[in-house]
Design a protein around this nucleic acid. Sequence first.
DNA 1: CTTGACACCAAAAACGTTTTGGGAGAGTAA
DNA 2: TTACTCTCCCAAAACGTTTTTGGTGTCAAG
Lengths: 341, 341
Amino acid sequence: MAVTIRDVAKRLRLSITTVSRALDGYNDVSGKTRARVIRTARAMGYVPSRAARQLRRQRADAIGYVIPGQAPYFTDPFSSEFIAGLGDAATSHNLDLLISTASPDSDAEHHIYARWTQSRPVDGIVLSRLRLKDWRAKYLAQNDFPFVAHGHARLRLDFPYIEMDSRAGFVQLVQHLSARGHRRIAYIGAPAKFTLQAERFAGYQQGLADAHLAFDATLVAESDLTRTGGYQAAQRLLDLNARPTALICVNDLTAIGAMRAARERGIVVGRALAIAGYDGTEDSEHTDPPLTTLRQPIYDTAQRLVEMLLDRVAGKPIVEPHVILQPELIVRESTTFDFSS
Amino acid sequence: MAVTIRDVAKRLRLSITTVSRALDGYNDVSGKTRARVIRTARAMGYVPSRAARQLRRQRADAIGYVIPGQAPYFTDPFSSEFIAGLGDAATSHNLDLLISTASPDSDAEHHIYARWTQSRPVDGIVLSRLRLKDWRAKYLAQNDFPFVAHGHARLRLDFPYIEMDSRAGFVQLVQHLSARGHRRIAYIGAPAKFTLQAERFAGYQQGLADAHLAFDATLVAESDLTRTGGYQAAQRLLDLNARPTALICVNDLTAIGAMRAARERGIVVGRALAIAGYDGTEDSEHTDPPLTTLRQPIYDTAQRLVEMLLDRVAGKPIVEPHVILQPELIVRESTTFDFSS
DNA sequence: CTTGACACCAAAAACGTTTTGGGAGAGTAA
DNA sequence: TTACTCTCCCAAAACGTTTTTGGTGTCAAG
């Protein structure tokens, strides 16, 4: 079928060993022979069998990522960009990227992690959207399986991660809004189990405190990080008697849904209502009006995570195992109107 | 390290063969022995090594998909939903899904397909966003590598695919617009090499002809299927002296970008300008105003493609190798205003 | 009693690599 | 010459499965 190393060796009248070592760049092969081998191998279209190599080296040369979505409607641009980053990094390191989908804490999720750690089709795993008590982190650490994460958990566990200081970001955002005269600032969040919710919500509260604004629980809604979720949550908030003048959303998707709810009520976003999101997705540039948001470098983060993971897999110490990045506040028309005037 | 079949056999004082055959459900193992084997294997946490199995069976139990994006900014919800469909289908068949990214006709793309066909980490490949002369289809067919496609190519090649009758969809869309009094209907398309462009453009032209409207080349713009691309293309069209009153976009993303261009010019979408897209992504529900679009069942299509691919891999004849689906016209406020009044 | 048929199991080959442990020959030093 | 060191190459083992081939009892039929 496919051309194997044996075919190449036979053609060259060399041993399999020599061909293998020549291709792998060992220095116990003469330059002439190596050149001959490489030329012939390429000419014959030889590519090592992945399975055989994996079996022998006990390494898969692949990494895995489980998209944390609720199928069939996961269309979060965060995931897309994250996957693009992982994919490109993987390719440039000659790795394969294995993808699966499972909603958080579902049976499917448990199953896939069990399979990946036992059957070892991947050398390491990238986690994203961590939960405060993330069973995945616990499980992988327990089984001594290499992994890195986007975001951290509140567990007595040490693992490499990159996270955004989204708390600081939201503090900054509240400040931005209060400086424009907003006094009733609402917040649409995510389920409490997610670390990102804990931090962003904390940032929101901290921001209120900094601005000497009272926290009002009725101005807080929980959603599910989707457009539709944001739409529904915003409906409730906008129908309050004392309507908020500003809406901080846990991510851009939520904000996009919220904008729709406002429009349906004839509330002009950017004038009668300020709305802000988080992520800095391309979507946010094209909303009406363009959305104020906190940008995080999703693609680059994904790439960097792969680097960290590879070090982890290789057993090398990781230079900077806990990276904390600052999100960048991007002010657009959805929040520029000054309410104090 | 991990527990192997040998360990299980030793524990049970059975041969490796028997353990293997018991687990695989052959009927030349007594029921009692089988039960014993299964129980012990589970208790010991035995999971067959993927690599060893692959090597021996000459099958990877995995399928591959290359995201046709321009990194780093691929955030097309089409891909997201497509991947979700592939992933779920793969999981339910106990397959792995390998993902890579490469922009069309790039070196990276050639490289990845070469590697996947030679090194065989996947049993089959799913293609999407076909090109008229798709080298991938040609290449895979030539190398007798199993694949299926979303959309077809204009090649003398027979392969299984599912495609949308987007031509008919666009005819219907033009009819919808002309019935509302639009006479200057513009079109923002994609690069000509894509099959989807050929078909949708043809539908647009056919629709004009059906409505006895003259085709005007200045009302046609080429874009790149992204929001930003749509934004730029729309700018040109909206700055024409004789401005179009309707804008048909090759996909939703393009339409979203176009809407922004209109807003920046103070043109009220839905009143002074009709805009329509294609795909029926969740995005389209939340734009301002909500976007008229042609919905295609991305997630279901992906799942069905996996089924077809598996038949192909197994060498089974495919019941219905060429599926053609009708997109569903979803009329929303972006095109409801009647110009003839 | 012999002959199959059947149920069960073991040994060994094979999949295609990488790695281990030399080994032949040439050159150099004593 | 002998002993030693390089340089270049190779045979064989190993990775963990599945599959092929064949062997041993037991039992029923002839």
